[in-house]
């Protein structure tokens, strides 16, 4: 399968924070959800992919092209939503249309105006007068109106109400109908990713600690809740992490079937991405 995005050994040092050998592979036609707590390195990784930050090492290829050497060619085909970074807020959606016409070769004014209508966005009001949700919708409309092949989205659903989030997720799903297109998106709203992501990549403290298909994670991984006595009988090799709460132990396991057979447990709950995040970050080994 052809890869649309490849990140190899990406490293970047800041004072007190470091991205360490980040590796990401996104095949064509797929959606990858990029999760991790605040400050884990999601935005830094996205900024490196887009060559916004400086002095990082490693190799980044988009559409098989080098992200630095072929910058312009790549960006003609990439749509971007960045967290809190956009056009100056005194501009209007109509201004953005007029500007983007002369920035992207494939800018589709008709499509952009259609999105404005679909999202009930005013055309002549300054961005600063829009609500946070409306602003996010405008950013998404701007990111997809030049028919990009890859969407790189940093927290695209943050600040949206459930109805708007649903609209946006539908939009992403129809975008991915074209098998040439892919989406790389970071989000805190893990339930969104459970619905749409084909792959989940988990970053913690600047390191990728997990990258699997959604099926592997949501079908194979599981959570076992047990007492202290039961926990002590479990071999350390058989679980990924555990978390001790007041009354019970929560154990993250990699393969529900294997675990259930070995320890003779009838039902093991499937895990949600939120539980996975909490156990991976707060849990112990």
């Amino acid at each position: 399968m052809e890869n649309i995005l490849e990140v190899k050994n990406l490293c970047k040092k800041y004072k007190g924070f470091e991205l360490q050998n980040v590796n990401i592979t996104l095949p064509k036609g797929m959606i990858m959800g990029f999760i991790g707590e605040n400050g884990a390195g999601k935005t830094t990784t996205i900024k490196a992919i887009l060559d916004i930050i400086k002095n990082y090492t490693g190799e980044i290829k988009i559409f098989g092209l080098d992200n630095k050497k072929d910058d312009k060619k790549i960006k003609e085909n990439v749509g971007v939503v960045l967290d809190d970074m956009f056009f100056p807020e005194i501009l209007t959606p109509n201004d953005i249309n007029s500007i983007m016409k002369d920035i992207y070769k494939n800018w589709d004014s008709k499509l952009y105006l259609k999105y404005l209508t679909d999202f009930s966005l005013p055309r002549n009001k300054a961005i600063k007068t829009l609500s946070k949700g409306m602003r996010k919708k405008l950013e998404i409309a701007t990111a997809i109106s030049h028919h990009p092949q890859l969407l790189i989205l940093d927290e695209p659903t943050a600040g949206l109400d459930p109805v708007a989030r649903n609209e946006v997720i539908d939009l992403f799903q129809s975008f991915i109908q074209n098998e040439e297109c892919s989406i790389f998106l970071s989000s805190h709203i893990t339930t969104d990713l459970e619905h749409i992501a084909d792959y989940i990549t988990f970053i913690n403290n600047g390191k990728i600690i997990l990258s699997k298909t959604r099926e592997e994670l949501l079908e194979d991984y599981g959570i076992v809740k047990c007492s202290k006595e039961e926990f002590e009988k479990i071999d350390k090799k058989d679980f990924v992490q555990y978390k001790k709460s007041k009354y019970e132990y929560e154990i993250l396991i990699e393969n529900r079937k294997v675990f259930s057979k070995k320890y003779n447990i009838d039902t093991i709950d499937k895990i949600t991405l939120e539980e996975l995040m909490v156990l991976m970050i707060k849990g112990e080994k």
Binding site: K47, L50, E76, L82, M85, F87, E89, I103, Y104, K105
Partner: peptide, 12 residues
């Protein structure tokens, strides 16, 4: 509005 970062994500 951190335009500079956004601008770099656009072609040219």
């Amino acid at each position: 509005n951190k335009w500079d970062a956004y601008a770099i994500s656009l072609p040219g």
